[in-house]
């Protein structure tokens, strides 16, 4: 049995994820694990899986009414700073909105409920496709939404950093054809790209999107030159 303690890093990560979720780690170990959750999507998935596995134990928590003063204090903290807070709301909501749509791709639960709730008019069947972009061995994670109505690809970076002398470039891959550039991804946590007409058509049919690491300004050859740091399928929502 002792051998089972040392069967490689994957198992260690899974055990670490379990310990983190269970809550037995020290303050320092928890901090390290929490940072990994932010940076490492593979580890984050292990943690999520354990959260899910152990969640029935939460039935052991009694429901206890909190004093009214708590909600009042929350509202004071969140809503009394006035305009500054509200202004941030705009940016946050757009980011949140696109991440909200990812939920649709990730969880059927939210797909079924949130999207109609967000006020998408059902009478307007615009193409809207979503892709969650990630790759093994890379900490870069993006969500891409192709909005056929506005003809734009919206990107939201969930994780990963870019070196100052590099750019991310977004590619469309259709079957066995050579990748077609959608464009260099503008800097920032959220970005928009307007694809050319032929790319647009292919996007609307659903394809694989990939992000590669390129020299500043994008690939000099018209084909990816650097490693693919994230990729995923465009799915209909």
């Amino acid at each position: 049995m002792t051998a089972s303690d040392h069967t490689g890093p994957e198992r260690d990560d899974d055990a670490l994820a379990a310990e983190y979720v269970l809550g037995v780690l020290s303050a320092d170990e928890r901090q390290v694990a929490a940072q990994r959750v932010e940076r490492d999507p593979v580890f984050a998935r292990l943690v999520d899986a354990w959260q899910g596995r152990l969640s029935p134990l939460a039935a052991g928590y009694a429901e206890v009414e909190a004093p009214v003063s708590v909600k009042a204090a929350i509202d004071r903290r969140l809503f009394t700073r006035g305009a500054a807070q509200e202004d941030r709301g705009g940016l946050w909501s757009s980011l949140a909105f696109w991440r909200g749509l990812t939920a649709a791709a990730v969880a059927a639960l939210v797909l079924a409920t949130a999207v109609p709730y967000l006020g998408t008019p059902p009478s307007q069947p615009q193409t809207e496709l979503v892709a969650s972009l990630a790759a093994e061995g890379s900490d870069v994670r993006y969500v891409a939404v192709y909005d056929g109505g506005r003809n734009e690809v919206r990107l939201s970076r969930l994780a990963g950093q870019l070196a100052p002398d590099k750019d991310f470039e977004l590619w469309l891959i259709e079957g066995k054809n050579a990748p077609v550039s959608v464009g260099v991804v503008p800097a920032g946590a959220t970005a928009r790209l307007v694809p050319s007409a032929p790319v647009q058509q292919k996007l609307a049919q659903g394809a694989v999107l990939a992000i590669s690491l390129e020299p500043k300004g994008g690939s000099p050859t018209g084909q990816p030159t650097g490693p693919v740091v994230a990729a995923g399928d465009l799915k209909n929502i």
């Binding site: 998935r45 999520d48 899910g52 969640s55 991440r99 990730v106 969880a107 969930l158």
Partner: peptide, 15 residues
Amino acid sequence: DRFAISELSPMSWLI
């Protein structure tokens, strides 16, 4: 907005 990228049920996420 993080809830969207987790695969947890809503109550499990909050907990």
